[in-house]
Design a protein around this nucleic acid. Structure first.
Length: 575
RNA sequence: GCCCCAGUGGCUCAGUGGUAGAGCACGUCCUUGGUAAGGACGAGGCCCCGAGUUCAAUCCUCGGCUGGGGCUCCA
């Protein structure tokens, strides 16, 4: 039996045995100031009268805790055995009839024709449970009452525990965009835009591209330090490659196809196969390992239409992708090295609050259980050695191997996966990758897929929200802006501006004929790091007046050359 | 893909079954100001696309596209 309770905008699925605990939760929510006026108890899948009694206990509990809360009981339809045992409709029917008789007073009973189950499942393109919840909600709003009688039939085979987790998670305040929403910042600072004609694909404006490129440069430098070799592979590959890699089989729905002449090809949704081909360009020996191949790879993935979200979820994705080829013994150390890199970026550079999760073997997996155990142990040991705190997600690994992910929350409290480290023992076999060992025998290397930013787009989105658009000097799209005080000072202002440009700063100017207040205001809104005003005083003394973003104090009479040097120092320190 | 909501000048939004309005931004002029909005005037719109209802649709209905939130999936 499934047990559903709804109140206000909350919707929760609870297995009946756990549901008894729920009234406590209700009181907690009331303490937090949640206003709950009505609780709707919806019973589905009643299998016996015991179920109904349990539900009644639950209702009594609610009444004890919150006497003013209105409780409405709905018996949706006892579909016991219906899904799993269509051969016994009479059994289900008898339960239903009993229930109806006993409960008519208290429960609104809705029933559907038994044949509806199949129909419903066929109709559902999404998750049947999720759809059921919408149906119920719709019914409650009274808009389409007739729908209520048609629902309530769901296959038991669907794993509800995961859904439970999702749905019972704190409901987000979705009514308002937060001020630090990256989409708003992106528009205000003229960083990027989207267009209907290329959904899920970012148009990077000058300002946004500056941020993007700085991050790329930063990452390149760091990867060099960590011993990676950067390469670049094609965008379009023939389908036969995707058949080898397994994407044809597992990822076809997400790929863009493009045929030409006699070739059937696809735009790459992942970078791995291209890199595998580079590995194969020569014979490798154990001396070459670990081989760390790095690529800023641009991939395209067809995503379900309801799933795109600003920079967080896009179709054209740029990844700081790398593949590490190594021996089994080297895996642990390589993972530890990756943690170092993660720490360097996430902690030292940006000071993010992030969580680490280890996902293990799923029910449907490729390869040997033994290999999986080795891989999982390697990941876990590395986590422990690197003293990383982590959570285990059992059974949520990729089909080809276990993985470690880094998650960060956005302005709405939603968690996004950024960095990912995945062990793969399938791809090297499929591509027949080899290396010669010390003993002159041929071995298959282990493959580690990993991305640190994850997707550049998503990372920039997270970063913008984290800093509320106040980017540090080295990343800022407009580092310095020169303002003319009056039209008398235009020439000198132009000189100062030219000088800054020639020094290589991202500088711009505002020589409009409006008040200095208005220009300063605009510079602050644009999150310009340093605003420089030149007026008569400055012109006379060959100085500048410097204002730092968010600071009310202004440094009058500053020396231009010294200012330039200070800027350079600040950029180099990446503070 | 599913559920709910939205789509009106570059931006933020009003509004109406009789083909449109404000503020900001933009342009011109006045003003020449010391660190978060000086003033006047002006230009700018296939009211997302397609069909239907109607004498008449930006508005109502249906379908589509895109965006937002929630699922599912993922970086």
């Amino acid at each position: 039996m499934r047990f559903i309770s709804l109140h206000c905008d909350y919707i929760k699925f609870k297995p009946v045995k756990k549901a008894i605990k729920e009234p406590e939760q209700l009181s907690k929510e009331r303490e937090k100031g949640e206003e709950i006026k009505e609780v709707l108890v919806v019973l589905t899948a009643v299998e016996s009268m015991d179920d109904i009694e349990t539900a009644d206990d639950y209702v009594e509990n609610i009444k004890d805790i919150a006497s003013q809360v209105k409780v409405k009981k709905i018996l949706l339809y006892p579909y016991a055995h219906l899904s799993s045992d269509l051969a016994k409709p009479n059994l289900a029917l008898s339960v239903l009839e009993k229930a109806e008789m006993l409960l008519k007073k208290d429960y609104e009973v809705h029933r559907a024709p038994f044949g509806y189950y199949k129909e419903f499942e066929l109709k559902c393109k999404g998750h049947p449970l999720a759809e059921l919840s919408r149906e119920i909600r719709k019914g409650i709003k009274g808009k389409k009452d007739e729908n209520i009688s048609k629902i309530g039939i769901i296959e038991e085979k669907y794993d509800t525990s995961r859904l439970l987790k999702e749905i019972s998670r704190t409901k987000l305040d979705t009514s308002k965009l937060k001020e630090n929403d990256h989409r708003i910042i992106g528009q205000k600072l003229d960083l990027f835009s989207f267009n209907e004609s290329a959904p899920g694909s970012v148009f990077w404006h000058e300002n946004g591209l500056a941020v993007f490129n700085e991050l790329v440069n930063f990452s390149r430098e760091l990867h060099k330090k960590f011993g990676y070799k950067e390469i670049l592979t094609p965008f379009i590959f023939e389908n036969k490659l995707w058949k080898v890699s397994g994407h044809w089989e597992h990822y076809k729905e997400n790929m863009f196809f493009t045929d030409y002449e006699n070739r059937n090809a696809a735009v790459k949704p992942m970078n791995c196969p291209g890199m595998m081909l580079v590995y194969r360009t020569k014979t490798r020996s154990y001396k070459d390992l670990p081989l760390r191949m790095f690529e800023f790879g641009t991939v395209h993935r067809k995503e379900l239409s309801g799933v795109l979200a600003g920079l967080f979820r896009v179709i054209k994705i740029t990844m700081d992708d790398a593949h590490i080829f190594c021996s089994l013994e080297q895996v642990e150390q390589e993972i530890i090295n990756i943690f170092e890199l993660v720490k360097e970026i996430y902690k030292e550079t940006f000071n993010f609050d992030y969580s680490t999760e280890l996902s293990t073997r799923p029910e449907k997996f490729m390869g040997d259980k033994k290999d999986w155990e080795i891989a999982e142990n390697a990941l876990e040991n590395a986590l422990k050695k690197a003293k990383v705190k982590y959570k285990v997600n059992k059974g949520e690994g990729a089909f080809y191997g276990p993985k470690i992910d880094i998650h960060i929350k956005d302005s709405l409290g939603r968690s996004w996966q950024c960095a990912t480290i995945q062990l793969d023992m399938q791809m090297p076999k499929r591509f027949e990758l080899e290396y010669t060992g010390k003993d002159n025998k041929i071995y298959i290397p282990i493959l580690i897929h990993r991305a640190i930013f994850g997707s550049m787009e998503r990372f920039i989105g997270i970063l913008l929200e984290h800093l509320n658009g106040n980017l540090p000097l080295w990343l800022a799209p407009i580092q310095v802006r020169v303002l003319s005080f009056t039209n008398r000072n235009l020439k000198y202002a132009q000189n100062v501006y030219d000088k800054l440009r020639k020094e290589g700063f991202r500088a711009d100017n505002d020589f409009r004929d409006i008040t200095i207040d208005a220009k300063v205001r605009d510079a602050e809104i644009m999150k310009v790091n340093y605003t420089i005003v030149v007026g008569d005083k400055e012109e006379k003394g060959k100085t500048i007046a410097v204002r730092r973003r968010g600071n009310k104090k202004v440094e009058f009479g500053a020396d231009t050359d010294k200012f330039i040097n200070d800027l350079k120092t600040e950029i180099n320190e990446r503070r």
